[in-house]
Design a protein around this nucleic acid. Structure first.
Lengths: 360, 360
DNA sequence: TTGAAAGCGCTAACAG
DNA sequence: CTGTTAGCGCTTTCAA
């Protein structure tokens, strides 16, 4: 019995993970020596180092990061709160942030918190702070200031934890916010349409309480004015939705009004898909008769539509990466604040004539 | 100067967060009393409790979860490794898992690890184990066994950490795996088509190395046989992609072959969208002439297509929730293993006649 | 070259 | 009712 038990205790996986104390004992050295042998910082006899390392390997020793964090006062951990979990931008943003942080061996706590559920967000924040995160990144959609949906600054009590807002910004002068430059993106799209010879443009877009809507409209107007053109109000169709159905409906309206158009800039790709579909249904060719440009460069739609959609890409994954990197910088003490607008790029495909031939 | 400094030290946010020691001192009680006052477990004079609580609030005391984890031997933290970060199922799975875990105050470490990057996955696993996660959940696509893409069991060295695979399974008899029941989903779709009077069915689907492809095919065949029908091989079109373009191409092939069809079951919704588009282009009505059923119930496509797509929903968010709950159970010592197949449901929309009128 | 010992912030057993 | 004390696993000083 005794013999059996002993054998077991040698073979069976130990209940508790090995500690550095176990390693030290197994190697026949002191605790501190074991520590130095594994992490350097002290001159030790090579033989000793080897003995300790061998013992550590044998025992599958893995330093307990909780204790290390406690001692260093840094957890190598960042909280990521998404206030809009299911939005189109969520996943690329998440992967971008994770990419940048993982490269620096920083782990990410994932927190979903619907805007309507303040209690859950509170719980997440408390949990993150208790777990000693080195910083918190908040993700949300940007709504116009007077919208009830507009994102509020996150209340984290003290000023000790770096805070960063991605894809949206808040009215906190001390906060760092990274957002896509919607206006510039719209400029790219409009310039492309004009450069390919279109003169009679329309804009079909989504609900106005999304800040992207007025911003993109502004960009479009700017460019047209710079070219001595105007965008009549009746050529701007603002819908209650961002989907294909609205795209189809909007085209119907334009056709009913017998509008004279040769180019349509859409607020996003799903609208653009609906637009193309409705145009086709009327025997109108894209891009030959009317060029169509989308926004988002959402591949499942843009790349596989017929024709493939020219679209503005907000480079959200990259924005996420930049957010992650900025957070790392803040953690290292580089203070930063303000709103940083990152550029969009235009992806040329078949729904517009690529007469100018360039991707910007 | 001194006075100023003192004032500052009172007003300015403390550099270090308050510890329970600070609270005890501020309340004029011993350390353990402070601890018990805040968490109960000992009879204390109400007055003492209040004093401690007041001090804690004043100092914005927040217990250090790292230390608590260390002591309890449980970190209230779970690692989530996504081996296929950008797949359609990733986000609902993530939110589902997070939902279930957050409800039990368990935090989620988010780790993206492309299948092709074993080193990064290794790094993530090491990091998770070092951070003492209570369990690890792995997400991946399911490929057929002999595919080089097929997911391998995660190597976590010891048997101490509960492990769970979601949306896919691995060849580890001790592992618990939760997957959608693709076959049953295909049965639902096929039964629906038959119930609404269709007899001449075709199947347009994606690459065979996705296990879902043979499974869904099997379900379709089963049901047809049960109804005394057969699915001729030339009515099964297996593509190299899952996108609209392939959907359009497949329809072209069927038309070229002058196939006699009144119903098409598609391997996913994007294919279905392409199918509908190609049928429309030929003046074929959906569902009047040919009924179309998709798979995935991916709302951006299914809900806003014209006509709206009937589609099989794998209930992935729910699968994620179940995975989270199962993980909690495992953490609490309830051992579990094997492959659990969760049912799909059929969402009836306009691309098929809902003659039987029921949602199953 | 190495070992002993003092914490990190908290919990829980042990003493009043 | 409350205080003292011994750890948790590790890093880092201080001694040898």
């Amino acid at each position: 019995m005794d013999a059996e038990d002993q054998e077991k205790s040698l073979e069976a996986p130990r209940e508790r993970a090995a500690t550095i104390r176990d390693v030290a004992a197994a190697a026949g050295v002191s605790l501190s020596t074991a520590s130095y042998a594994l992490r350097g910082g002290r001159k030790l006899r090579p033989e000793t180092v080897d003995r300790v390392k061998a013992a550590a390997a044998r025992l599958e020793y893995r330093p307990n990061a909780l204790m290390q964090s406690l001692l260093r006062g840094r957890s190598y951990t960042v909280g990521l709160i998404s206030r809009e979990p299911l939005a189109r931008f969520s996943l690329p943003l998440l992967t971008g942030v994770e990419d940048a942080l993982a490269a620096s061996h920083v782990s990410v706590f994932l927190c979903f918190a619907d805007r309507t559920d303040a209690a859950r967000e509170r719980q997440h924040v408390e949990s993150l702070l208790a777990k000693q995160v080195d910083g918190i990144i908040v993700l949300d959609e940007q709504f116009v200031d007077d919208s009830p949906l507009a994102s509020r600054p996150l209340d984290i009590g003290n000023g000790r934890t770096p805070l960063l807002y991605a894809y949206h910004y808040v009215a906190d002068p001390d906060a760092l916010c990274l957002v896509p430059d919607h206006t510039q993106g719209a400029c790219l799209a409009t310039e492309h349409l004009l450069a390919s010879g279109r003169r009679h443009l329309a804009h079909i877009t989504g609900p106005q309480h999304f800040e992207a809507v007025p911003l993109r409209m502004k960009g479009m107007r700017q460019v047209m004015q710079a070219h001595g053109l105007t965008l009549p109000d009746e050529m701007v169709l603002i819908g209650d939705d961002w989907d294909q159905r609205w795209g189809r409906g909007a085209v119907q309206r334009l056709l009913d009004a017998k509008a004279n158009i040769d180019g349509i800039f859409c607020g996003n790709d799903t609208i653009a898909v609906g637009v193309v579909e409705a145009l086709h249904a009327q025997g109108i060719r894209v891009p030959d008769d009317i060029a169509v440009v989308g926004f988002d460069n959402w591949e499942p739609f843009a790349e596989y539509n017929d024709p493939r959609l020219t679209s503005v890409d907000m480079q959200i994954h990259e924005l996420g990466r930049r957010a992650g990197q900025a957070m790392l910088a803040m953690i290292n003490g580089e203070l930063a604040s303000g709103i940083l607008r990152l550029p969009c790029r235009l992806v040329l495909r078949d729904s517009s004539n690529a007469a100018d031939g360039n991707e910007r």
